[in-house]
Amino acid sequence: MTVLGQILLSALFQGSLYAMMAVGLALVWTTIGVFNFCHGVLMTLGAYLAWQFVDPEALGLPMFVALPLALLVVAAIGFALQALLIRPFIGRGDVVLVAVITTLAASSILKNGTLLVWGPRPKSIPPLAPDTIALGASNVSAHQLAIIAITPVVLGLVWLFLNRTRVGLALRAVAQNEDACQLVGMNVTALYALAFGLAAALAALAGIFFGGFKFMSPDMGTEPLTKALVVVIFGGIANITGPILAAYIIGLFEAVSIYYVGFYWTPALLFAVLIVVLMVRPEGLFARSSRGLA
């Protein structure tokens, strides 16, 4: 494969993973107005639960049962976390600050809980597609191609949900005016829980993606969370299309930079560019000024 082809493939692959993580963060921020530092560990839980359900040493369920089950369980965990860590502080002036520390603390609890339950031995789950596919002269892993193909579909569905269904509209509305939502009869608490649960499920899906090509460890969510933070900083957290675009742009930036500048300098370069972008456009590259989904 040509250099250009390799760079593009890598950009699309990394971009897909980043987008999958970042959208959940943006979803929680836009609806609830807090930053969820549990997002990385929810991804870890998604991967470990998928392993628990699918691995022959554990439950050994078929993939098509195990994966949705893992997503559901993580969504339920997200529900519970929201009720415990965020809901009690809503309405306080310092909710953003308090939510940072409660989600950080919960993330530490869950990370070490994962270690406690599943141990430190690296694990892996079967890839979504096992083979390699010949693309031009070289072989590409089918798992990577599957991720590249599935991600836009999933994110497209999320977009449709937020823009075309009444519940999705309600999620966008709750971000903009909570009082008015109550007055048309919405259950704001339930909408918060839904946003958190949906974001958790997306993180879990990203975890399943990761677990199919890398060894899993309880700490596996930290790095993707950092990257997702970069993506939402870059794309703006006020909507979900901005972070999606930003995810692919950063994937491309990294692929190009790693090839031409080198592996070690790339993260520093990325953060330097990020800071410059933020100095020019604090709300991110693609954000409008107000908070609102889609």
Binding site: L169, A170, R172, D179, A180, L183, V184, G185, M186, S290
Partner: peptide, 22 residues
């Protein structure tokens, strides 16, 4: 309510659809 901003980023069509939430 008095002087409601409603949902600034939603269109009229979307806003009325939410009105039928009950």
């Amino acid at each position: 309510p008095q002087g409601s901003r409603l949902f600034p980023d939603l269109t009229i069509r979307e806003t009325l659809r939410l009105g039928a939430w009950p």
